[in-house]
Simulated assay, not measured.
Amino acid sequence: MQNEKDLFDMLKEMYPQHPRKEFVSATENTLRHRARSMRKKRILTKFSVISSSVLVCAFIFSWLIFFNGNSKVSEVIHSFGGASSSYGMDEKEPVVYIYHSHNIESFIPELPTQEVYSEQVYRERAYSDTKNVTLVGKELSRALEEIQVPSIHDETDIAGILKQKGLHFPDSYKVSRENLQKVLAENDSIRMVFDIHRDSNKRRDSTIEIKGKEYARIQFIVSKTSKNYEANKKFATQLHEQLEELYPGLSRGVVEKGIDPPNTYNQDLHDNSLLLNIGGIENTLEETYRTTDVFAQVLKDILEKSK
């Protein structure tokens, strides 16, 4: 395609007799005008082609979303749409996994009953299908994501699965183990694993006042029968010491269990895996939330130091 200069040079070759300046100037202006018109037409044509392509793609994309809800496209939209998934933030991979082997463990102040029970019944009544320790894990996940630490919070109803399959309470760890194995296999970015419970201790042992506010104390449980015992104990001790430095007395320390009866608490699957008791039967959810908010910051500090 010839440009304006080529056309003007060709004109000069066609008219070697040196035409008048007025004629040359007028002709040059005419040619420039026509060249600009030709450029506009080409741009308009390209724009039309691009617009048509965009419209076709938009139509296909919309059809996939609305008429094929199970497609991969729908999954991609969900993962980038800021939905309620706790798998990550800012497109980062999850580094903390939170789950609950005893998901219906609850807190007496959160339950609707005011009746007086014997000591045994009192403790056995601290269970709920809705207001339970799962909410504590949810708050920890929220607090982590707020400070840019992506996490997975597993809200699987372990108690419901036990009932459905005719299994017993001690089988809880076997059921939760299946989910944990699957998550670890699919997310090699996981660096910390926490199975969150609540203890059966009374308020005097499970609560501490810090700066005029009540906090549910946290306890770290390490299985002595796990092959990762040493690594997990070191991890638990690190968390305990970090909490003691920030909020003395908030941690109830590191406890070793799992010998009688033998139980790894699934800690053999990861070397930074712990069972946490956050609060006891007489704590409130609000008190546990204060603790998880503090604990989230401790986890972030440790993750940053280990980079």
Score class of each variant (00 low, 15 high):
residue 212 G to S: 13
residue 193 V to P: 09
residue 18 H to A: 15
residue 174 K to P: 00
residue 91 E to Q: 09
residue 196 I to Q: 06
residue 48 S to K: 04
residue 204 R to S: 11
residue 158 I to S: 02
residue 58 A to F: 06
residue 247 Y to Q: 09
residue 111 L to N: 02
residue 105 E to H: 11
residue 283 N to D: 10
residue 289 Y to F: 15
residue 10 M to C: 07
residue 154 D to H: 04
residue 133 V to F: 01
residue 57 C to S: 08
residue 254 V to L: 07
residue 59 F to S: 12
residue 135 L to W: 00
residue 74 S to F: 02
residue 272 N to P: 09
residue 79 S to Q: 03
residue 220 F to P: 03
residue 60 I to C: 13
residue 201 N to V: 14
residue 119 E to C: 00
residue 145 E to N: 08
residue 117 Y to F: 06
residue 15 Y to G: 01
residue 145 E to M: 09
residue 197 H to N: 08
residue 263 N to W: 09
residue 257 K to V: 14
residue 2 Q to H: 01
residue 304 E to Q: 15
residue 41 K to N: 03
residue 191 R to C: 14
residue 191 R to W: 12
residue 287 E to Y: 02
residue 283 N to A: 06
residue 291 T to A: 13
residue 241 E to W: 06
residue 42 R to W: 03
residue 77 I to F: 03
residue 129 D to H: 04
residue 194 F to G: 05
residue 126 A to L: 01
residue 274 L to V: 14
residue 66 F to R: 12
residue 95 V to S: 12
residue 14 M to V: 07
residue 57 C to D: 02
residue 130 T to I: 02
residue 205 D to Q: 03
residue 139 E to K: 04
residue 130 T to P: 00
residue 220 F to C: 06
residue 43 I to T: 07
residue 268 D to E: 15
residue 4 E to Q: 05
residue 22 E to D: 15
residue 170 P to R: 13
residue 146 E to C: 07
residue 104 I to F: 06
residue 205 D to R: 06
residue 102 H to N: 05
residue 236 A to K: 07
residue 98 I to E: 01
residue 1 M to C: 01
residue 213 K to C: 12
residue 3 N to I: 02
residue 109 P to M: 05
residue 147 I to V: 14
residue 152 I to E: 00
residue 49 V to G: 01
residue 170 P to Q: 14
residue 157 D to N: 12
residue 186 E to F: 04
residue 164 Q to L: 03
residue 61 F to S: 09
residue 201 N to E: 12
residue 172 S to Q: 10
residue 86 S to Y: 09
residue 168 H to I: 08
residue 279 G to D: 08
residue 11 L to R: 10
residue 242 Q to Y: 08
residue 145 E to D: 04
residue 82 G to Y: 03
residue 2 Q to M: 01
residue 43 I to S: 09
residue 53 S to C: 10
residue 137 G to Y: 03
residue 239 L to S: 10
residue 264 T to I: 07
residue 115 E to G: 06
residue 197 H to E: 05
residue 188 D to K: 09
residue 237 T to P: 03
residue 77 I to W: 00
residue 249 G to V: 11
residue 144 L to R: 07
residue 207 T to E: 14
residue 37 S to R: 12
residue 201 N to L: 15
residue 160 G to A: 01
residue 258 G to W: 08
residue 51 S to C: 03
residue 17 Q to L: 10
residue 266 N to Y: 07
residue 75 E to K: 10
residue 107 F to V: 01
residue 251 S to N: 09
residue 153 H to S: 02
residue 221 I to C: 05
residue 213 K to A: 15
residue 110 E to F: 07
residue 236 A to R: 04
residue 15 Y to D: 03
residue 142 R to Y: 12
residue 52 S to Q: 01
residue 268 D to M: 08
residue 162 L to K: 09
residue 110 E to A: 13
residue 207 T to N: 11
residue 119 E to A: 01
residue 301 D to Q: 15
residue 223 S to G: 11
residue 257 K to L: 12
residue 214 E to I: 06
residue 122 Y to M: 00
residue 246 L to T: 12
residue 8 F to R: 02
residue 181 Q to C: 10
residue 151 S to N: 08
residue 125 R to H: 02
residue 190 I to R: 10
residue 294 V to M: 15
residue 54 V to R: 09
residue 194 F to L: 13
residue 65 I to A: 12
residue 99 Y to N: 11
residue 245 E to H: 14
residue 269 L to T: 12
residue 304 E to N: 15
residue 8 F to Q: 02
residue 30 T to V: 14
residue 248 P to N: 08
residue 256 E to S: 14
residue 158 I to E: 02
residue 274 L to P: 11
residue 175 V to K: 03
residue 1 M to Y: 05
residue 100 H to E: 03
